[in-house]
Design a protein around this nucleic acid. Structure first.
Length: 192
DNA sequence: TGCTCGATTGTCT
DNA sequence: GACAATCGAGCAC
C-alpha cells in the first residue's frame, strides 16, 4: 500500500523512524525501481540549528514550508542531490540509504557501477540511482508523480543514533538505521 | 559583489 | 585516512 499524506503529517522524528523498512518506489518507463529504506534522518524547523528551515523560509527550503507528503530535493557540495520528504511542523526527513529491490539494472546504469552494495548506500547515491532530480522538488509523493513510498508489511529493528555530516545540532539522536533481526521469516531476510 | 562552506562521494595514499 | 571536485545558498560588506 502507498503511504497516504496523513503518514507524513506528523513530527519529523516519528516519520523518520516509521519510514525505516518501507519501500521507496520510482516508476521509470513503466518499470519499477525500488529499494527498502534503511537509513533516515529527521530535520526540524526553526528549533533545529541543523535544519535548512532554521533561519526561516527561502527559495531553496520553500517546500519544507508547504504541505506534508511532498518531496524536497536540494543540491549540495556542488555535485550531489539529497532527497527529503516534507513532514508536519516545517520538518523534513532525509533518506540516506536504501537496499535495492527492483530495477537493479536501471540503478547500475544511472550510477555507472555494478557494485550492488553501493548502488544507493548514501544520500547522493540514492538520488542518482533513482533518477531523482530537482524536477521532483515540491511534488507530492503519489502514483501520479511516479515517486512514492510503500508499506509492504516488513518490520525492521530500528536503531537510533546522532545525525552525521552536520556541524550543528549533533546532540540530537535523530538518525534512524534499520537492521534485520535474526530469526525472521526467510522471505524477509536480505538477499545473499 | 565577493566569500565561505556545505544534510557527499570517489579517488589516491 | 586525507582530500579534491564543484557550485549555489546565504551572509558580510
Amino acid at each position: 500500500m502507498i503511504l497516504p499524506p496523513e503518514f507524513y503529517a506528523r513530527k519529523p522524528v516519528e516519520v523518520a523512524r516509521d519510514l525505516i523498512g518501507k519501500v521507496l518506489v520510482r516508476l521509470m518507463d513503466g518499470r519499477r525501481v525500488s529499494g527498502r529504506i534503511l537509513e533516515t534522518e529527521a530535520y526540524g524547523g526553526s528549533d533545529d540549528p541543523a535544519s535548512h528551515a532554521f533561519r526561516g523560509k527561502t527559495r531553496r527550503n520553500a517546500p519544507m514550508f508547504g504541505p506534508p507528503g511532498r518531496a524536497y530535493v536540494y543540491f549540495v557540495y556542488g555535485n550531489h542531490f539529497c532527497f527529503n520528504v516534507v513532514t508536519a511542523g516545517v520538518g523534513a526527513v532525509l533518506l540516506r540509504s536504501v537496499q535495492p529491490l527492483e530495477g537493479l539494472d536501471i540503478m547500475k546504469k544511472l550510477r555507472g557501477t555494478e557494485d550492488e552494495e553501493n548502488l544507493a548506500s548514501g544520500p547522493g547515491k540514492l538520488t542518482r540511482a533513482f533518477g531523482i532530480t530537482p524536477d521532483f522538488n515540491g511534488l507530492p509523493l503519489c502514483r501520479e508523480t511516479g515517486l512514492f513510498i510503500e508499506d509492504d508489511g516488513t518490520r525492521l529493528e530500528v536503531r537510533r543514533t546522532p545525525r552525521i555530516g552536520i556541524s550543528r545540532g549533533t546532540e540530537r539522536k535523530w538518525r534512524f538505521v534499520g537492521e534485520w533481526r535474526l530469526g525472521q521469516d526467510s522471505n524477509l531476510r536480505p538477499p545473499g
